[in-house]
Design a protein around this nucleic acid. Structure first.
Length: 939
DNA sequence: CCAATCCCATA
DNA sequence: GTATGGGATTGGA
């Protein structure tokens, strides 16, 4: 492409895929209504999108020509090719139907041409315009995220796509990322994988991954079909042979028509200044006030706010729209490497003057307990970042360490800044950095943690909370991948061996992005009601958890080793018995082989096959067989238990003991569970066995330091108590106040009498309620026919009408707003699944949505207790008591001998009053406390 | 060496 | 039926 063709005079056509946009907008945006009370959420989203696009008229690379393309008719040439095409597509939701005509009205209001043509789908019309514009030498941007249209991308010819929903440009590189093949090969991949929504058959067993891999290997569909002899997987090969015709048909179905006559000539699509009157009339008619204000205020020229923010503003006029921040591209070349004192002093002064600074520590290891510092990066403004190396060494034996300031000097100079109460220190996953500085004797405060902020705002959304992922989601920015610096696998190097140049770009970017995230997220915390949960619950927990991780818990290595060999012997002898019962050896640990042995070799009946065609051999199945007297099944069950205990616990735990401290230091994740719970990893100390006697032995390996005891305090039935509170069930609340056994009470209400079986059934049902289970699910769990399950749940609702009301109101709230809330305001998001057209996905989201407020409130409570615990203990003169672990409803402490009763009183008080003063509960929170030489004894 | 799958430990 | 993390096997890079 010549320079002349890229001159500003080159026309740039924007083709808006209106039909697909409105579907996606419907599922992604809240169900707003317009001034007439008609559903208009999708129309609103569509209007703001057109606004933004049209607004680019005068901008560089903005549209000079524009058209909206719609689907006109149901019947197209594809139906003639294949009568099943789009045959199973469900009808559009009923509150979307009335919005279709409004799309044309909205488009006319902008005075933009709206193009549809009988017998052609929108995709085809777009393809025709792309072809015409391409030969005329125009640039084209297709505004859509439809994967079928990605076939048309041709960056050399200036043809790309724009996904306004995610504010993302799609070019060759993005297509490669998604499909593993360039745009011109996308049709080949689509043909193989098929499309269940449009009912394009594809080849069974081939999904996106395999399709992409095959096309990468063979180039196109025909070559794949002609090369089946080179395909090693037998199932895949057969499927390709059997369904070759379907694959060829699919290839034609996904091929876009690009040579039909244009309904409107290219020149007719020129974008002129948009007359104000029709637009004003439309916005006023619909009652889109925030847009109307913008039309009257800054006019169409004002930009910056996203569609999402407009919707927030439309939903609640009081909530301020997010600040309009101009996007500044990340420029890593602006970052400085600090290797002299005056420069360091300058940065410290700058941070102090500013009042906030983002920082990130780089180390040689992801485990912060044993990690050594490599360097520290700071950022004070977008693109204004520096990296201070302190622990870099040469990349290999021959090279010397680079010149850098001594670690002790840097830490000494930074300490006053890091401890300055007037300067906010911002980190991403700040727990890690906090531990690094704590090890150096610096108590960093005050802090903000952008990872926790993201979690408190966006838990449950489609993106996680890692720095790179958030950079992508919020700024459409790709961070330097860590493996690009350090490699991967066995050739991976540690960060302290990275050259200072690349290290500065990487570390500076981390601090830079962290700062940008803070600027972006901080205003949202208050605007979206997350202040209570962030400021009072999660933020204060960052150093608390950091301290717990540093303390670790003492583990008796010799005892674990003895258990390991004991288990090992038992496993051996079980294996011999199993081989005997199975008439020959096999890999017991392989579910595949075990299934073959049980249902093949031994010829047992009743095997359940799962979706992969493999026999299920889980506990339920094996227990069923064992109950029928199958020796082999009960032996395998025992073998499974012992191998699980040995590999996951006795062996793995020994390996996790830190040689310096003789203790195990887990890592708690503050953002691991969508409901607000913590999670624990490396090792996971939240799933140490307790239910079986033999598993319980593992708990005895957790011991107290010399002169201390382990104390365990746990909330009794906290989730049921919270359910009784939140659903407002008088009998249940009363029972909890009087210390009545709750499952017996439920059995009495449901069955009119109480015995062991009925109490157990009632217990199952009580839990099923917490988990949002259906009548069908309860019946399955209790082993009853479906109608009896339904009868039981009806009776439950009849006896406890509050539960039904709670379920109902939780679901209608989440359907409307897309999120649930705990008593303390923590939100968990459930879009898009809560509105999924797929009933099983939707039902899954509904169960999770019923559980989330209860599980989440329980998580909030114990977190509030934890945040207050250290101060309360210190005030009681129990500064020596160490909080070590949290297991969702339990806290484990190390308490000096003789102080157990005192500690018990304080801990119980803090935990029982954790809701106060924010919330007044009508149900007491019971806390059970025990202690002993080891964890097993403390229960 | 990596991922998908199955199974299983906890609350 | 909810929420997690992790080990072993398997099959293909």
């Amino acid at each position: 492409m010549s320079d002349a063709a890229q001159a500003p005079a080159q026309p740039h056509l924007y083709l808006v895929d209106g039909s697909s946009y409105i579907f996606r907008a419907y599922h992604r945006l809240p169900p707003l209504t317009n001034r007439h009370g008609q559903p208009a959420g999708a129309v609103y989203g569509y209007t703001t999108m057109l606004w933004k696009l049209a607004d680019g008229l005068s901008k560089a690379d903005g549209p000079t020509h524009m058209a909206v393309i719609l689907d006109a008719s149901e019947q197209t040439h594809r139906n003639r090719m294949y009568d099943q095409y789009k045959a199973h597509r469900p009808p559009p939701p009923e509150d979307l139907v009335p919005q279709f005509p409004l799309i044309r009205v909205a488009t006319r209001a902008f005075s933009i041409p709206c193009i549809e043509e009988d017998g052609l789908e929108a995709d085809d019309i777009i393809a025709c315009y792309v072809a015409a514009a391409k030969s005329a030498g125009w640039k084209v941007t297709i505004v859509s995220s439809d994967k079928d249209l990605m076939q048309l991308i041709d960056e050399d010819a200036g043809i790309d796509m724009l996904d306004t929903m995610n504010d993302r440009r799609i070019g060759r590189e993005q297509v490669l990322e998604k499909f593993g093949v360039p745009p011109e090969k996308v049709g080949e991949v689509l043909a193989l994988m098929g499309d269940s929504v449009d009912n394009v058959p594809g080849v069974p067993g081939i999904g996106p991954k395999t399709a992409s891999q095959l096309i990468q290997q063979f180039g196109d569909l025909e070559t794949v079909l002609g090369s089946t002899d080179q395909i090693t997987k037998p199932k895949l090969k057969q499927s390709l042979i059997d369904h070759a015709d379907n694959a060829r048909l699919s290839r034609e179905l996904v091929r876009l028509v690009c040579d039909a006559p244009l309904p409107e000539p290219l020149d007719g699509l020129v974008l002129k200044n948009i007359p104000k009157e029709p637009l004003e009339e439309f916005l006023a008619d619909q009652g889109f006030k925030s847009l109307l204000n913008r039309l009257h205020g800054g006019g169409v020229q004002q930009t910056g706010a996203t569609v999402r923010n407009d919707v927030m503003a439309a939903m609640d006029a009081k909530s301020p729209a997010a600040p309009i921040t101009e996007k500044i591209d990340v420029d890593r070349s602006k970052y400085e490497t600090i290797i002299d004192e005056p420069s360091l002093d300058r940065w410290i002064a700058e941070a102090r003057a500013q009042g906030y600074v983002a920082l990130d520590t780089e180390t040689d290891c992801i485990n912060c307990i044993i990690a050594r510092l490599a360097g520290i990066s700071l950022a004070t403004a977008p693109n204004r970042a520096c990296y201070i190396p302190v622990g870099h060494i040469g990349g290999d034996l021959l090279s010397d360490a680079p010149q850098q300031l001594p670690e002790s000097l840097v830490l000494e100079k930074l300490k006053p800044l890091l401890e300055d109460p007037a300067v906010i220190k911002i980190g991403h996953n700040f727990k890690y950095d906090w531990v690094m500085f704590d090890k150096a004797g610096t108590d960093v405060a005050p802090v903000d943690d952008t990872m926790v902020m993201s979690f408190d705002l966006d838990a449950g959304k489609s993106f996680g909370h890692g720095l790179e992922e958030l950079a992508k989601a919020h700024f459409d920015h790709e961070c330097i991948p860590f493996k690009q610096l350090c490699g991967t696998g066995s050739k991976q190097i540690t960060f302290d061996k990275v050259q200072l140049g690349p290290a500065t770009e990487y570390a500076g970017e981390d601090a830079d992005i962290t700062l940008r995230l803070w600027l972006w997220l901080k205003p949202r915390i208050a605007a979206e009601g997350a202040t209570q949960v962030y400021e009072r619950v999660d933020k204060p927990l960052v150093p608390v958890i950091g301290r717990m991780e540093r303390r670790g818990v003492k583990v008796d290595r010799d005892y674990l080793a003895r258990l390991s060999s004991e288990f090992g012997r038992d496993i051996q002898s079980l294996e011999e018995k199993i081989y005997e019962a199975a008439c020959g050896p096999f890999t017991i640990g392989s579910p595949q082989q075990l299934g073959e042995v049980l249902y093949g070799r031994l010829g047992l009946k009743g095997g359940r096959k799962g979706k992969s065609g493999q026999y299920s051999t889980d506990v339920n199945e094996l227990e069923r067989l064992a109950g029928e007297g199958v020796q082999c099944a009960s032996l395998v069950l025992e073998w499974r238990q012992l191998t699980k205990l040995k590999s996951t616990y006795t062996d793995a735990l020994q390996a996790q003991i830190n040689p310096q401290t003789g203790r195990v230091h887990t890592s708690f994740s503050l953002t691991g569970a969508q409901t607000g719970r913590l999670s624990s990893n490396d090792p996971n100390l939240q799933n140490i066995p307790i239910r079986t006697e033999i598993g319980r032995k593992i708990r005895d390996a957790f011991i107290a330091d010399e002169g201390y005891k382990l104390l365990s305090a746990d909330y009794s039935q906290i989730e049921l108590r919270l359910a009784a509170q939140m659903a407002d069930v008088p009998q249940l609340k009363e029972a909890f106040r009087n210390g009545v056994d709750i499952h017996s009470l439920t059995a009495e209400e449901l069955f009119g009498r109480v015995d062991r079986d009925r109490r157990n059934q009632a217990k199952t049902i009580n839990f099923a309620i917490l988990y949002g289970s259906s009548a069908w699910g309860i019946a399955g769990r209790l082993g009853l026919p479906k109608d009896e399950g339904k009868a039981i749940i009806d009776r439950y609702y009849e006896r406890f009408p509050g539960i039904r009301a709670f379920t109902h109101s939780t679901l209608s709230f989440v359907r409307e707003h897309g999120f649930t809330r705990t008593l303390f305001g923590r939100r968990t998001h459930f879009l898009p699944n809560i509105r999924s057209p797929n009933p099983s996905i939707r039902a899954g989201a509904e169960r999770a949505a019923i559980n989330a407020p209860i599980q989440g409130t329980s998580a909030d409570l114990i977190k509030r207790a934890m945040a207050r615990m250290d101060d309360a203990l210190r005030e009681a003169g129990l500064g020596d008591v160490r909080m070590l672990l949290q297991v969702h409803d339990e806290l484990v402490f190390e308490v000096p001998n003789g102080r157990e009763e005192e500690a018990k009183a304080v801990i119980k008080k803090v935990m029982a009053s954790a809701a106060e003063p924010a919330i007044r509960l009508d149900v007491p929170l019971d806390v059970e406390v025990g202690w002993g030489a080891h964890w097993g004894e403390a229960h």
